[in-house]
């Protein structure tokens, strides 16, 4: 199958997104590759950094059905997945789908909700289906969740445990914009204001095709050597308390493949692994002595040799 037009489309989509979310090329690319890798995205940032804008823009460009739920402590699972409603005309109950039945679901301030509501969402993310009253309802494909978390003001929140953070393929944070970018924003005709002008660049079928392409991106033995060195270091480094799990390692591989695809390449380079490493690994490992997972991931990335290994012939 000729994938060139698809790649052309996705690059056009990237360009359009960057028109709206200014100066965050890397984050936008990570978000998109997360989507292509069929994973979910966790955005950790302060309020007003453009988390919602990112989600909205992605939905617009990719032609996804976008729904947003503000998570609060009184949110119930039924508020997310929907409930059976009695129909007086037919005198039967029929299922009324909740906001989760969408293709891009924005869970705003996920950590404000109770663990019960959180787990309802996480279950849906993992299984891609919900069960209500014994009936199973499959979620539409693609199903993409962007959850946001406010790292500050943790009072009255339920921080996600490590095992649940693991459900998110990537974790990114947007951060403050650069001065020139902020100037553009202040002028008022860029950013969120430009959202309505965004047109759909990809349809659902193209997106699904692209998602199927990701696992076909070639991974050489030399690259596997490098990835394994990285993984081993997260487990052996003296600053590391909890190393990367095999599931995390697989997530790293998938993200790197997806990133390579976005670059229009048929094989993975060390650059691709390095580009996604912090976003994949940062929330999955725990450091000693108050070392943040993200810092630790950077440390690991810097200390591991990008080349070398026993190579193709010797490993066989």
């Amino acid at each position: 199958m000729n994938t060139t037009p698809l790649l052309h489309d996705i690059n056009a989509a990237l360009k359009a997104l960057n028109q709206v979310i200014l100066g965050k090329e890397e984050q936008v690319r990570l978000a998109l590759s997360c989507l292509l890798a069929n994973g979910h995205l966790l955005v950790e940032d302060l309020p007003g950094m453009g988390k919602t804008t990112l989600a909205h823009a992605l939905a617009n460009v990719l032609g996804l059905a976008y729904k947003r739920v503000q998570f609060t402590s009184d949110l119930l699972p039924a508020d997310l997945v929907g409930s059976a409603v009695f129909d007086p005309k037919t005198t039967t109950f029929h299922f009324h789908p909740g906001p989760i039945f969408s293709t891009l679901f924005l869970a705003d301030e996920l950590n404000r909700a109770t663990p019960k509501a959180q787990s309802a969402l996480l279950e849906a993310m993992e299984e891609k289906q919900v069960s209500i009253d014994g009936e199973t309802h499959t979620l539409p494909a693609p199903f993409f969740v962007i959850a946001t978390q406010n790292p500050q003001s943790q009072s009255g929140t339920f921080p996600l445990p490590e095992s649940q953070l693991d459900r998110f393929l990537l974790r990114i944070s947007l951060g403050y914009p650069a001065a020139t970018v902020e100037r553009e924003l202040l002028k008022g005709n860029k950013g969120r204001a430009a959202l309505p002008q965004l047109s759909q660049m990809l349809n659902r079928e193209s997106l699904l095709t692209l998602q199927k392409l990701v696992p076909q991106i070639k991974v050489s033995d030399t690259l596997l050597d490098y990835v394994q060195r990285l993984i081993a270091r997260t487990r052996e480094d003296e600053l590391c308390y909890l190393g990367l799990s095999p599931r995390g390692a697989m997530a790293l591989m998938r993200s790197a493949q997806s990133w390579a695809l976005l670059q229009g390449r048929g094989h993975v380079l060390p650059e691709d692994v390095q580009a996604v490493f912090v976003a994949v690994v940062g929330h999955r490992i725990i450091g000693r002595k108050e070392t943040q997972g993200e810092q630790l991931a950077r440390h690991v990335l810097h200390s591991v040799d990008a080349i070398g290994g026993i190579g193709v012939k010797n490993s066989a």
């Binding site: 030399t222 080349i307 070398g308 290994g309 026993i310 190579g311 193709v312 012939k313 010797n314």
Partner: peptide
Amino acid sequence: HPQEAPEHQLYR
């Protein structure tokens, strides 16, 4: 010790 592959040796 398992030696590095020749291409890596060359690169080094």
